[in-house]
Amino acid sequence: MSLLEIRNLHAGYGQMTILKGIDMTLEAGEIGVIVGPNGAGKSTTLKAIFGMLNITEGSIHFDGHDITGISPEKLAAHKIAMVPQEHNVFATLTVHENLEMGAYTRRDDYSRVMDEVYEIFPPLKDKRRQAAGELSGGQRQMVAFGRALMIEPKLILLDEPTAGLSPMYMSEIFDRVIAINKLGVTVAMVEQNAKQALAIAHKGFVLANGQNSYTDTGRALLDNPEVAKSFLGG
């Protein structure tokens, strides 16, 4: 059984339907990358998984549980974490407090996880007493990742993690995604930089107009001339 199974998903904001039948499956331990032109419904798909949209049809199953339309605050219990594209840190809280908030739903001792996060993101350790809003863009992204890792998620949803970052940081972010994946976390990621993202993906989903256009391994999609022509800019 797959870890994440999305079947024929229709969803939107209020009356407006944006997703018109999305299918998506991810096995445990995979990196799945969602690409496609603007307005294809990439971020919307993530938000739909996270219960932030109105689902009109279809289903989402995670790890054997039906999580269709579940409210976002309950997903932490299923060990699903999300890093939104913008405003993804608590700017007025310290780095340390951001991580603590990541573990809000945990009642057990999470100091070990906290140490691990500081190990993966060494710069955060020195700035743990600083307000997250005072950090650089790249460091804020680390705080956001770290916060999401605090529940030791099985699945992490990343919404355009490289948006607004300089190209220098970009490859660093992809390295981090791989590092997180190596910890055994399944990753579902929306990316604008399709080529680099597909290069690290086990599975790629090309969306257009709220529907799947192509689904294949990352490598195969990169090699597919049609995908290259219409979505990857040649």
Binding site: F50, P72, E73, K74, L75, A76, A77, M82, P84, H87, N88, V89, F90, A91, T92, L93, E97, E100, M101, G102, Y104, T105, R147, I151
Partner: peptide, 19 residues
């Protein structure tokens, strides 16, 4: 701290699982 987090960024607080 959760109160400060909600005051700071309610949608992120919700995503984080804060009730």
């Amino acid at each position: 701290k959760a109160m400060r987090a909600v005051s700071d960024n309610p949608s992120l607080a919700q995503v984080t699982g804060i009730s």
